[in-house]
Design a binder for these strands. Structure first.
Lengths: 344, 344
DNA sequence: GTGAAAGCGCTAACAC
DNA sequence: GTGTTAGCGCTTTCAC
């Protein structure tokens, strides 16, 4: 009983076998709920597991190729309410389906992105969810070839085999622009999203098409660059306001930049919607609680997370399942950030 | 060359060894950047790895007890902006330190909580962050005994050895109540947080103590139950408003319930702060953007996440490090949701 | 039904 | 310096 200080080792399947006086393959059978184990032995094993506090070692299992019951999610970062909503949807669905979630953040580094994909798909996870991947071409082929289950969220167009979940970005943007046009605005500024994402491009296109349908010339001067960030929305509007003929309305490619636009208006002493109309895109939860509440194009983000997860789980559980590409509807949510332009 | 359909197997250390014509322990040395490998062999191995697209299998590594470079985070759920802020802090710090994050959600099920802890600490992760644990007593002793690195966020009081990061809940609550008192309010409603969390209890106590210091009797009638959720804040205020003598101010134990309280006021046609003053706790990002902007007690949540992570990493990298208990200051952020009560 | 034994891919102790 | 080898804890044939 000399006091040997030692980390208490966890019980393994072998300890349980010894304790229950059976071979350790029998223990494995019990643990995995397989047949061909006599009731009394099963009892003994269960009792021994209980007594020893046995917990299966997940590493060893997946080394042998057993499923892990873990779904991986790869995202840019967590700074955006949009991602957080998707994350919530995914998390709820994953947990309802009895899986666990492993979250990885690339912090926008491409190298990290493909590195994670390589490592994770070596048995750490059963399936992978990719939200807005930056550099999918470097690994999507491989995943597809290895038949590793994955689903891409809110981005498409880089191939024609990847299962995806996206929203009707073009339509949403087209509708929002028309709404502003119907109110009487003719000079509508646009704040771009990250130009490497298909969603951003589609939104720009919807805006352009709505304009051209009404015979309004597209004016690059009032299209501001951006990457879906608040600060860029702010800067964009500051620049727009400095123009000789500033726009009377702003359509931002996402809510975050719309918030930034609102910040800039407030700072410039402009009231919304009296002096400037603003429309966003996404309808993140806070869009309803800003002042004034933001008119925006709703994407069912939470549901998109859930749908992507369901798609993924279906393909984990049935690898032969053909790949699907889901497109969900957007909807213009009219709140109080827009009104007709003031008479000049 | 008959078309055998087969998932392409990933290259292992053995394949690399064969390709480079060395033993596979040499490959292991190269992979792990150890000394005692001649330059030319190292070159050959590196080339072979490159050619074969070799990626180390993390499962096998951690089976052997090697560190995983992964930090686990266990949270209730993702529904709360508070948790998301903590998560952001953790994520940023983890990634800056070169670790990866594994996120697990218990959805408030105690059994899941301890189950996760048991599994994760078997080698899947190098350290564990626990945010607001529900049932820590069932596993904290074990972790402590096994010297498994972990840090508890925003909860303490269940033992005296666990490393924790918490805020000055009592003080923040005391300050906020005094602020309301100073404005002239004497009937201040309180919306409770989850009573099984030390933070909720401390906030209640701060409120009570501030009241009693001014000789104002504590009135259970205007203390509403809650668990930090928006809906409960809403319901609480609906009930409070139905009283014969409703409060003129509400102090909510967190921002979410304060938002709920604002919802209820708005619905009842009461203006904030003219008809009702409201104070929250936490200062989540949206607190600044509600209408009116919410006066609230700021906890540096993002920083708390970072600090907890730093603490954890320090103890991963130096297991002998004594446990620390960090307490960070809260601060009353005065915005526009409060004013003196109307004259009766 | 049940046990023995062969690995899964890797690290590390040990030889040479 | 480099190779050989013994496991880490488990699943899964394959005998009996």
């Amino acid at each position: 009983m000399a006091g040997k200080i030692q980390k208490s080792r966890r019980a393994t399947i072998i300890d349980v076998a010894r304790e229950a006086n059976v071979s350790y393959s029998t223990v494995s059978r019990v643990v995995n709920n397989l047949d061909h184990v006599k009731a009394d032995k099963r009892e003994r094993v269960l009792a021994a597991m209980e007594r020893l506090g046995y917990i299966a070692n997940q590493q060893a299992r997946s080394l042998k190729g057993a499923p892990t019951n873990v779904i991986g999610l790869l995202v840019h970062d967590l700074g955006d309410a949009y991602i957080v909503e998707i994350l919530r949807g995914i998390d709820d669905e994953i947990s309802a389906a009895g899986y666990d979630l492993m979250l990885f953040t690339t912090h926008r580094q491409k190298a990290k992105e493909s590195g994670y994909v390589q490592t994770l798909t070596q048995g750490m996870i059963d399936g992978l969810l990719l939200s807005l991947p930056l550099d999918p071409s470097s690994y999507l082929d491989m995943l597809h070839q290895e038949q590793f289950p994955y689903v891409v969220l809110d981005h498409h167009g880089f191939d024609d085999f990847s299962p995806t979940v996206t929203a009707t970005n073009w339509q949403g943007s087209f509708d929002a622009t028309n709404y502003l046009l119907d109110l009487g605005h003719t000079r509508i500024g646009f704040i771009m999203g990250a130009p490497d994402l298909s969603s951003a491009l589609e939104r720009l296109q919807g805006y352009k098409d709505a304009l051209s349908q009404r015979g309004i010339a597209f004016d690059v001067e009032i299209v501001a660059p951006g990457h879906f960030h608040r600060g860029e929305g702010y800067q964009a509007v500051r620049n727009l306001l400095a123009l000789d003929e500033p726009p009377t309305a702003i359509f931002a490619a996402n809510d975050m930049s719309a918030f930034g636009a609102m910040d800039a208006c407030r700072e410039a002493g402009l009231s919304i919607p009296q002096d400037m109309s603003i429309v966003g895109f996404d309808d993140v939860p806070t869009a309803a609680t800003t002042y004034p509440p933001l008119t925006t194009v709703r994407q069912p983000i939470y549901d998109m997370g859930r749908m992507a997860t369901r798609l993924l789980i279906a393909s984990i559980e049935n690898p032969a399942r053909p790949s699907e590409r889901l497109v969900v509807d957007t909807e213009l949510i009219i709140r109080q950030s827009c009104q007709p332009p003031k008479k000049a």
